[in-house]
Design a binder for these strands. Structure first.
Lengths: 121, 121
DNA sequence: TATTAAAAATAGAATCGTTCTAGTTTAAGG
DNA sequence: CCTTAAACTAGAACGATTCTATTTTTAATA
């Protein structure tokens, strides 16, 4: 994985949630010969090794995200996705379930301030 | 939406999480002339009207689900997706966040009993 | 340093879920 | 009935992702 570290850095330092294409374009700046399939290969490997997260959103290309635990807010108006750091509820879940879990994905749907304004008209 | 009600019924009464293709095949039994694009159209409309839920899973076709509130368990071994009815944590989330939300999606990753056995070898 | 083998990258075709377009049928209201 | 809009059909098109075959790079070893 010649590009693995750089791809990981791109994903980790981005605060947006980048698509493979966007990561490819960013990587291309330093390595102009790199090809999209390579980026996919690297992303898949990083994902399988738990180094990054993958977010699938309906109708959109998958997005890649840093692996540190956090949750997501999705605005149901504009669709914008943002990070939110809520307390870990793993223990709570496990207590409810009665068995242990590996992780969880929490996606919260809301209306962002701008879309709320928009809607009030 | 000539097929709307029947599609809704298929989704609501299924305990698996059906793909558009599977729903199409089920619907075809009663309406042999129906076409996949129509099923997609209907599913999209139902989804936009909040009658059904849509679950996007990486690398797989979208799945459709009843809209009543529940959460999901995904086995990280075999990938099987199942329903789980945990208490609603909307209020808890809102308290943490300080603003109101519309809904949330909670997907819990774990190892199902069969895969746990498998792994112990 | 040269040799070799394995791993990663490249190019581009292929796949497959989903949407789109244009034409046709159906349903509802006047 | 007649008209019009909505829904459906057929099949092409699209786009994200994967696959295949080939080439390049890397790393190990002699």
């Amino acid at each position: 994985m010649r590009y693995g570290n750089h791809i990981l850095e791109i994903v980790n330092t981005s605060d947006t949630h980048m698509t493979a294409e966007q990561i490819f374009l960013a990587l291309k700046q330093r390595y102009p010969k790199v090809v999209l399939a390579t980026v996919y290969n690297n992303l898949n490997t990083l994902y399988q090794n738990g180094k990054i997260r993958k977010i699938s959103m309906e109708g959109q290309p998958d997005r890649y995200d840093k692996s540190i635990r956090h949750d997501h807010l999705v605005c149901s108006g504009c669709g914008r996705l943002s990070d939110i750091y809520l307390p870990d509820i793993t223990a709570q879940m496990e207590q409810e379930l009665g068995f242990s879990i590996q992780s969880y994905d929490l996606k919260i749907r809301y209306l962002c301030p701008e879309c709320r304004k928009e809607q009030q008209r």
